[in-house]
Simulated scan of single mutants.
Amino acid sequence: MPRIAPLEPPYAPELQAHFDRIMPPGVPPLRLFRTLATSERAWTKFRAGSLLDRGPLPLREREIVIDRTCALTRCAYEWGVHVAYFADRAGLTGEQVRATVLEPATAACWSEAEQALIAAIDALHHRATWNEEEFTAIKRHYDDAQILEVILLCGFYRTVAYLANGLALPLEAGTARFPDAA
């Protein structure tokens, strides 16, 4: 059971409209969203600071950032949601999805640009900065707007991990589970 009970339908019309804008048709709002919506302030701040729009990164790179950040923070809830809803659309193979959790940035399944991206994500997670070599590597493949987006996504999804993990949110039905290290 989650530590804070999420809202249950029916939702207030304004809240339902928000859910309808961010959820695919026919998919009920995520438990995370319904839990945050128990506090108008938390829900408003989450939406205002969120990165639920497309942004300057292609979907594939965006999902690599999110999946790796969620894996590093051991946020099975959000990792599972993103893998279930976006991995195929982002063109991530099963090997790559598994690698977001279990492999180093240098795993052979990634392109050179993706290896630089994953090394940058790892560095931000572990040290909250990049050394010159890491920055030079990511800068070789991504422009300034994309680099800023990487930083913002890492920070935002770390916050999402704090919420999902801290609230002990149960995994959503039909979402992916962390792979076993075998």
Rank of each mutant, 00 (worst) to 15 (best):
T44V: 12
D88S: 13
P24L: 13
A87F: 07
D122R: 08
D122S: 11
E61I: 02
L51C: 05
D88L: 11
L163P: 00
L36S: 08
L102H: 03
T159V: 12
H18E: 13
Q115Y: 07
P179H: 05
T35K: 06
A164Q: 03
G166C: 06
L32K: 04
T44Q: 13
R62F: 07
M1N: 08
C75G: 03
A108N: 04
V150Y: 03
E132D: 15
L152P: 00
A168E: 13
G94A: 15
D20C: 03
A181F: 06
E114K: 02
I66V: 12
H82D: 09
R31T: 14
L36C: 08
K45V: 14
G26E: 06
T175R: 03
E134N: 13
R3P: 01
A161M: 09
I118D: 02
A181E: 12
T136S: 14
D180Q: 14
P10F: 10
F33S: 13
P56I: 12
R74F: 05
V150T: 10
L32E: 03
P9T: 02
A145T: 10
D180R: 13
D20W: 01
W43H: 14
G166A: 09
D88R: 15
A5P: 05
L92F: 06
Y85M: 15
A5Y: 01
P9Y: 10
P13H: 04
A168Y: 00
A119H: 05
P28F: 08
L169F: 06
A161N: 01
E14I: 03
W130S: 08
A12I: 02
G166S: 05
G26C: 06
W110Y: 08
A161C: 03
D67K: 13
A71M: 04
L169R: 00
D88A: 15
T129A: 14
W130R: 04
V150R: 10
F178Q: 09
